[in-house]
Computed example of a mutant assay.
Amino acid sequence: MTTDDWLADTRTSYDTVAVSYTDQMRDAIAGDLYLRAALALFADRVRAAGDGPVADVGCGPGHVTAHLRGLGVDAFGIDLSPGMIDVARREYPGLRFEVGSMTDLHLGDASVAGVLAWWSLIHLPDDEVPTVFAHFHRVLRPGGPLQLGFHVGDVSRLKTEGYGGHPMKVHVHRRQPDKVASWLRDAGFEVEAHWLLDPDERVRQAILFARRHP
């Protein structure tokens, strides 16, 4: 599958489910102590690095971007799906949201104080990861934090419906934290920690904390 193919499938899928996804995820952060703690720690790391704009890459309907703004972070959102961006702009009209792809991130070199990518790497094929992490490294200021959230595992599956039974066509890739950390080190990041969430669930989640070397 070419880059254009999986990007087009992902874009169309999330355009289709944008409204139902928003309804299901609206209270996700409010209902999870550990997600809130991870975002609070990220906000602290942004402040420690000198503050500035923060890119929420794969922002979906904007609820994470808005939470970061509530923590005092100058966050803006980027998402591949125009449908998701339309919803985000309606839900949070005072915030900045843009259509864009993490595979071709249109941000200036060292232009952001932090990058967050929560569960937006899960549709990214392995061979695209180094390109995306190189973009993250390029746009981050030296010392700036990067936080990733993803599904833990060793398998990939094709998802054909979701969020209210709507049709989708996306591959969902589960990865081990050590593998993601190795890719980050290769891209020039210092990996600081990772959290394993839901360890007793069938599908575990991880949050990985890193920063660009000063």
Rank of each mutant, 00 (worst) to 15 (best):
121 L>P: 04
78 I>M: 11
132 V>R: 02
91 E>S: 15
114 G>M: 06
89 R>V: 08
119 W>A: 12
81 S>P: 08
133 F>Y: 11
96 R>N: 07
113 A>Y: 12
114 G>Y: 09
101 S>W: 02
93 P>D: 08
99 V>C: 12
94 G>H: 01
83 G>Q: 07
102 M>E: 13
76 F>T: 02
82 P>L: 10
116 L>S: 12
84 M>S: 06
96 R>M: 01
95 L>M: 10
131 T>N: 13
101 S>V: 02
77 G>L: 09
78 I>T: 09
112 V>L: 12
135 H>F: 02
114 G>Q: 05
80 L>N: 07
111 S>I: 08
89 R>L: 10
116 L>N: 08
92 Y>T: 00
78 I>G: 06
84 M>I: 08
77 G>M: 06
118 W>I: 11
109 D>H: 14
114 G>A: 04
125 P>I: 14
84 M>F: 05
101 S>H: 03
128 E>F: 03
95 L>T: 00
122 I>T: 13
76 F>I: 00
93 P>G: 05
136 F>T: 09
115 V>G: 04
126 D>W: 08
123 H>V: 11
101 S>G: 11
114 G>W: 09
118 W>S: 11
112 V>N: 13
97 F>M: 03
85 I>P: 00
84 M>N: 11
87 V>C: 09
118 W>E: 07
126 D>M: 12
102 M>C: 12
80 L>T: 07
124 L>I: 15
121 L>E: 05
129 V>A: 14
100 G>N: 04
121 L>D: 08
102 M>V: 08
77 G>N: 11
114 G>I: 01
117 A>R: 04
131 T>L: 14
81 S>W: 07
124 L>D: 03
113 A>V: 02
135 H>V: 03
94 G>C: 07
115 V>Q: 07
97 F>Y: 11
94 G>W: 01
118 W>P: 00
98 E>N: 08
115 V>S: 07
105 L>W: 11
99 V>F: 06
131 T>Q: 13
120 S>R: 00
119 W>D: 15
84 M>W: 03
118 W>G: 02
94 G>F: 02
110 A>Q: 13
87 V>Y: 01
107 L>Q: 10
99 V>D: 09
134 A>I: 06
102 M>W: 03
104 D>W: 01
121 L>T: 13
100 G>S: 05
76 F>P: 01
83 G>S: 06
102 M>F: 05
76 F>K: 05
105 L>H: 12
95 L>S: 14
98 E>M: 11
94 G>L: 06
131 T>D: 11
83 G>A: 08
106 H>A: 15
104 D>S: 12
97 F>E: 02
113 A>M: 04
89 R>A: 14
101 S>R: 03
134 A>Y: 00
77 G>W: 09
100 G>Y: 03
117 A>P: 01
113 A>N: 07
108 G>Y: 14
86 D>Y: 00
117 A>M: 06
134 A>C: 07
